[in-house]
């Protein structure tokens, strides 16, 4: 039944691809190559004198104990943000998909946080959890629970994870909801008639059927946790206390913007890029195998 259109012109496909390829080249590949080149340079901040130093920036970064520590922080951070935001979003999506009163309202409200800029979201969390001016923070301290994310590593990390995950729940929610709604009702009704409860239906029918969406979201969320959480961390903890919330992307900022060390910052970017490419490749290799595209 499939209809095929055959173009004789050999040039046309390339022509059609050209805009996308051009945008990718100019905005992604070219800057990435520049970063690779920059990472081999030692420059004064004003760019007036430049030396080629081969891989010295890389050795400096990789032998810095602080950098190795931040790999650990990033791993915890990315895993927690991804797990928390996807888990909560899926839970909400399943609940909002059910036949409950006012479900349109729930669906609309759950999407709202996505409209917030990361820095704004972080400030909202700050007003809740600041030990002196935040509602929850104050209450905790008055109740005798020592809450001070400025000095407690665990609390600081939890806070940035919570704030980062919260923002991403909405995004995941939209996709999960759409995926759940695209499952034919007849399949679920058939299972219900066969005596499968909601839990059983979820794990044997819905969850496997939304696997492509889950896989897509896994990659998007991991990338989000690695790259897009800078604003939240900067506004909440600035990487502190100590370096307890300095993730890899925050280190790139510190090296590039605070220290004005463009070579070192570029080296960190390249390492981070290699990291995420490898991680995505691994996900495609091992996780995608188990995904069935209907």
């Amino acid at each position: 039944m499939q209809r095929r259109v055959i173009f004789d012109d050999k040039l046309l496909p390339y022509l059609l691809l050209f805009p996308q390829v051009a945008v990718t080249l100019v905005f992604f590949i070219w800057p990435a190559l520049q970063a690779v080149w920059q990472s081999t340079q030692l420059q004064d901040v004003f760019g007036l004198s430049t030396q080629f130093v081969w891989f010295e920036n890389y050795t400096a970064v990789l032998t810095d104990p602080g950098y190795v520590g931040s790999i650990r922080v990033t791993a915890i951070f990315a895993a927690s943000v991804t797990g928390l935001s996807m888990g909560l979003a899926l839970l909400f999506a399943v609940m909002a998909d059910a036949n409950i009163r006012g479900r349109e309202a729930y669906q609309a409200l759950l999407i709202w946080p996505y409209a917030l800029a990361p820095a704004v979201a972080a400030v909202l969390w700050l007003f809740i959890f600041h030990p002196q001016i935040g509602m929850v923070g104050r209450t905790l301290n008055q109740a005798g629970v020592p809450w001070d994310y400025k000095l407690n590593n665990g609390q600081a990390l939890s806070l940035v994870i919570l704030a980062s995950a919260w923002k991403q729940v909405s995004y995941n929610f939209i996709f999960f909801l759409a995926a759940l709604q695209s499952i034919p009702k007849s399949v679920i009704e058939a299972a219900a008639i066969d005596g499968a409860g909601p839990r059983r239906r979820f794990f044997t029918i819905q969850f496997p059927l939304i696997a492509p969406t889950s896989f897509f979201l896994l990659i998007v969320n991991v990338t989000y946790a690695f790259f897009d959480t800078f604003g939240v961390i900067h506004a909440l903890t600035q990487g502190g206390p100590g370096t307890a919330t300095s993730t890899l992307i925050y280190n790139v900022y510190k090296a590039g913007m605070v220290a004005q060390d463009l070579g070192g910052s570029a080296a960190q970017s390249v390492i981070l890029m290699a990291f995420v490419i490898a991680l995505t490749a691994v996900q495609f290799r091992f996780v995608e195998r188990r995904v069935h595209y209907g």
Partner: peptide, 12 residues
Amino acid sequence: VIMQEEMERAFQ
């Protein structure tokens, strides 16, 4: 920034 980070670790 480095001094602040190390001082924070001392306060912790």
